Amino acid sequence: MTRLSAVLCVHNEEQRLARCLDALGFADEIVLVLDRCTDRTRAIGEAYGAVMLSGVFPLEGSRRAAGMNAATGDWILEIDADEIVSAELAQEILASLDDTRFAFRKAPIDNYVGDRLIRHGWGGAFGTSLAARFYRRGSKRWGHERVHPGVTFDGPEGPKFTSPLHHQFADSVSDVFRRLDRYTDLKAQDLREHGGKMGIADNVWRGLRRFWKCYVKRRGWKEGGWGLMIAMMAGLYPLISALRADLDRPSVEAANEPAVALARAA
């Protein structure tokens, strides 16, 4: 029988985890990768019978790969604690488990800020409206970046799901700005370690292109002030990241910590 594993990478998610796990009852297995958790996240996972892997994972790719490798299902559904699988998407996923023609499929993402659904304008490394979260175990590979690592798949893409994954992108406008702060900090560490485009003029131009892409081509203007804010965040992302890479050089020592799995318990 074909099995499905839901895999989540979490850090101190006691406030949101239970609601996310409630929607995953259709999965045969839940795997939690606990990255330096100090709250009740582990206890919540135990209550749901999750397989848990604890460790220190500075890189997003190593966290997600650890979860995939710990899973026993034929297929992986990769979820974050701030996401909810809709009942309709769950049915589509279950109906596709025996289809061996494809290695992965993408699902649409409905992004919320507070109670506001924002459909248009996402992109430029600041949110997405479509993501490959369902894939055959062992078929996905991640890059070594700390944020938004590149991914590749061993095998062809299947048709897109039609039902959405609900994503609580942020709880408030302040949350959006905190996300920009976190993303640019991690990107700056990647730039210092791996290099990349750090020139001010070049990143101003990149930012303008990203703003245009989000606000005009992806119709962020339809969302009013919300779309303008998202487009501005996407446009500022490369410039702020480059500035922080230059100005914050001595600030982060943890970047060189190895990813170490500490414990695994069913």
Results as ranks from 00 to 15, higher is better:
residue 82 D to T: 05
residue 200 I to N: 02
residue 6 A to I: 01
residue 251 S to Q: 11
residue 235 G to T: 09
residue 163 S to E: 15
residue 144 H to R: 14
residue 209 R to G: 04
residue 22 D to V: 04
residue 133 R to N: 12
residue 67 G to E: 02
residue 157 E to F: 06
residue 152 T to F: 03
residue 2 T to A: 12
residue 200 I to S: 07
residue 185 D to W: 13
residue 57 F to S: 02
residue 34 L to N: 05
residue 263 A to W: 13
residue 98 D to V: 03
residue 91 Q to P: 03
residue 133 R to D: 05
residue 145 E to S: 09
residue 202 D to Q: 15
residue 122 W to R: 09
residue 46 E to I: 07
residue 186 L to Y: 03
residue 41 T to Y: 01
residue 141 R to W: 01
residue 115 D to V: 11
residue 52 M to E: 08
residue 221 W to L: 12
residue 99 D to Q: 12
residue 114 G to K: 02
residue 2 T to Y: 10
residue 56 V to I: 10
residue 87 A to C: 07
residue 240 I to W: 04
residue 215 Y to K: 06
residue 174 S to H: 11
residue 2 T to G: 04
residue 163 S to W: 08
residue 259 A to I: 01
residue 36 R to N: 13
residue 130 L to S: 14
residue 79 I to A: 04
residue 250 P to D: 15
residue 9 C to H: 01
residue 116 R to C: 10
residue 231 A to H: 02
residue 165 L to T: 09
residue 32 L to R: 01
residue 259 A to Y: 02
residue 225 G to S: 08
residue 132 A to W: 00
residue 75 W to F: 12
residue 208 L to P: 08
residue 239 L to N: 01
residue 197 K to Q: 15
residue 138 G to P: 06
residue 250 P to I: 06
residue 217 K to D: 14
residue 117 L to I: 11
residue 169 F to V: 02
residue 231 A to Q: 06
residue 10 V to K: 00
residue 212 W to I: 11
residue 29 E to F: 02
residue 4 L to I: 08
residue 86 S to W: 03
residue 15 Q to E: 14
residue 101 R to Q: 15
residue 119 R to E: 14
residue 170 A to R: 02
residue 129 S to C: 10
residue 225 G to N: 12
residue 213 K to I: 01
residue 71 A to W: 00
residue 255 A to V: 10
residue 193 E to R: 15
residue 32 L to K: 04
residue 255 A to E: 06
residue 151 V to L: 07
residue 14 E to R: 08
residue 144 H to Y: 13
residue 142 W to H: 13
residue 16 R to L: 09
residue 185 D to F: 13
residue 255 A to F: 01
residue 101 R to Y: 13
residue 96 S to G: 07
residue 261 A to G: 14
residue 97 L to P: 09
residue 210 R to I: 11
residue 68 M to P: 00
residue 24 L to M: 09
residue 117 L to Q: 06
residue 210 R to H: 10
residue 119 R to V: 14
residue 107 A to T: 13
residue 16 R to I: 12
residue 167 H to L: 09
residue 175 D to K: 07
residue 238 P to Q: 11
residue 24 L to Q: 03
residue 127 G to A: 08
residue 98 D to W: 00
residue 212 W to K: 12
residue 54 S to K: 05
residue 242 A to M: 07
residue 59 L to A: 08
residue 254 A to T: 12
residue 120 H to P: 02
residue 61 G to S: 08
residue 59 L to V: 08
residue 144 H to M: 13
residue 32 L to T: 10
residue 2 T to M: 15
residue 8 L to F: 00
residue 233 M to S: 15
residue 203 N to E: 08
residue 40 R to T: 01
residue 101 R to P: 10
residue 22 D to I: 04
residue 213 K to H: 15
residue 23 A to F: 05
residue 265 A to R: 11
residue 72 T to H: 11
residue 135 Y to M: 05
residue 252 V to L: 13
residue 6 A to T: 04
residue 253 E to I: 07
residue 49 G to R: 00
residue 89 L to N: 03
residue 29 E to I: 01
residue 73 G to P: 03
residue 28 D to C: 01
residue 81 A to C: 13
residue 97 L to I: 14
residue 216 V to Q: 12
residue 106 K to C: 12
residue 242 A to T: 06
residue 211 F to C: 04
residue 206 R to M: 10
residue 71 A to H: 03
residue 89 L to W: 07
residue 4 L to Y: 00
residue 3 R to H: 12
residue 89 L to G: 06
residue 82 D to C: 05
residue 131 A to D: 11
residue 86 S to A: 12
residue 249 R to S: 11
residue 42 R to P: 09
residue 124 G to K: 03
residue 228 L to T: 11
residue 178 R to S: 10
residue 5 S to R: 01
residue 147 V to K: 01
residue 225 G to M: 09
